[in-house]
Amino acid sequence: MKTVKWRRELPLHILVFPSLIIVFLYCYIPMFGNIIAFQDFRPIKGLLGSEWTGLTNLKYVLEMPNTYRIIWNTVYISTMKIMMGNIVPIIIALMLNEIRKTYVRRSIQTMIYFPYFLSWVILAGILIDILSVQNGIVNQALGWFGIQPIYFLGNNTWFPITLVVTDTWKEFGFNTIVFLAALTSINPSLYEAALIDGANRWKQTLHITLPGILPIVILMTTLSLGNVLNAGFDQVFNLYSPQVYESGDILDTMIYRIGVADAQYGPATAIGLLKSSVSLMLISVSYWMAYRFANYRIF
């Protein structure tokens, strides 16, 4: 009996097998490769031949003068992004919901999620051009209102703000669609009942629409908790420069510089491992919370 079942399942095992191997090679082996974090890794000696140094690498990284500021930058930038990335789409979705002409709504939707599909390389190229101090169109437009040119990408006060605003600009279309889908699933009879009770549009929004999308808002926020240590490598790496390291350097760019530019494999892996371990805890907690409160399952 058992062998029959096994034989019937065999084709399914074969279907899984190629993906299993690739994921093992390029996801699981790098996970074990994290032991470099505890070694004085020398490429010639290899993974098993290098000398074990315990927590020296981690201590070295944590004692670097900028580490704590970089951790702070990371958490600050990503928290601001998570907040803006949820608040702006809610407002836009509510506003779009008030538009009754379908074709207008559709064309606005089409335009607002266009930046979502462009990579940060393209967007950075565009942003560097339009935000430039000399001929950038943004500073020209500000000039019409008598505002002095602002060095958005080179000023430590403005750089984090620019990061958050441009990230929201790229991403808000996506969440807007998610919230709009949630809005359309609200039972219309609730609105009719409220109308009979004399509630105006504003009251309806406050007491029906917002509570109606609250579960999905909680879900999206919860799931984004796992990203607190991901402040957006692609964006920062393409937009930053040494003069804004103070306010814009994040963990991932620091890991890149230590590991790739300075070729200090051990320390880079140590800080990377610390980051992925904390992220693992955060993601587990956020998925557990999403499961507990919003009944969300990954698969």
């Binding site: 790098p30 490769g33 494999y265 990377g272």
Partner: peptide
């Protein structure tokens, strides 16, 4: 999705 190997081990693999 939950845990990843980090930049350097990924490169070395």
């Amino acid at each position: 999705i939950l845990f990843s190997g980090g930049l350097i081990p990924w490169y070395l693999t």
